[in-house]
């Protein structure tokens, strides 16, 4: 545990030291190469800007209007009919939010953890879910947008499939581990 936490803490400083020193020894003009590489950062940032704005506007309007809560309530009977714990319904907004927005999902997860307690079923499930799936929809639109891809083919379905599996696996493993 401490070892892994240590790696996370040291990884960036070590890379910042190791790569330039290694490059210098290999006779790379370190400063000039660094600057030449860094130039692309600006171009990429400008390129993804419209995709970021487009997605954020749509997501924020959806969440801030209260639509997320209402859609979650619609979906509740569906989950109940599958024979799941009634408590489980509280996790639905997080499950919907997770693929859409990282900061949005973190907000929902934080609220669930504070409301139910971090060591409750919902608290543990929200924590696991937050750490185990990614902002699929957001990543896809920004990454594809940055290189001008318009047709995603089966990418979105594959990503969302992984998210659904992540949700099911989270419920299963939290049950199995703690109850």
């Amino acid at each position: 545990m401490n070892v892994i936490a240590g790696i996370s803490r040291w990884a960036i400083p070590i890379l910042l030291l190791l790569i330039p020193v290694f490059a210098y020894l290999r006779k790379v003009p370190v400063y000039e190469s660094f600057v030449a590489g860094a130039e692309d950062g600006f171009k990429t940032g400008v390129k993804i800007l419209p995709f970021l704005i487009g997605m954020l506007v749509s997501i924020r309007v959806f969440v801030d209007s209260g639509a997320l809560v209402i859609v979650s309530r619609w979906l509740q009977p569906l989950f109940m009919s599958l024979g799941l714990d009634p408590n489980f319904a509280d996790i639905i907004p997080l499950a919907i939010m997770r693929p859409l927005s990282g900061s949005g999902a973190l907000g929902v997860a934080t609220q669930l953890i504070n409301q139910h307690g971090p060591d409750s079923f919902i608290g543990r499930l929200a924590s696991t879910l937050q750490g185990s799936t990614d902002t699929t929809f957001f990543v896809l639109t920004v990454y594809f947008g940055s290189v001008g891809i318009k047709k995603y083919r089966y990418a979105l379905k594959l990503g969302l499939l992984a998210d659904v599996i992540g949700l099911i696996a989270s419920v299963w493993i939290v049950h199995k581990t703690f109850y």
Binding site: I19, P20, S33, A38
Partner: peptide
């Protein structure tokens, strides 16, 4: 952040 990492990536590539 992007510029920082792309700069380092270029170094890593050239080395």
């Amino acid at each position: 952040v992007m510029s920082l990492w792309l700069g380092l990536l270029r170094l890593a590539e050239e080395a």
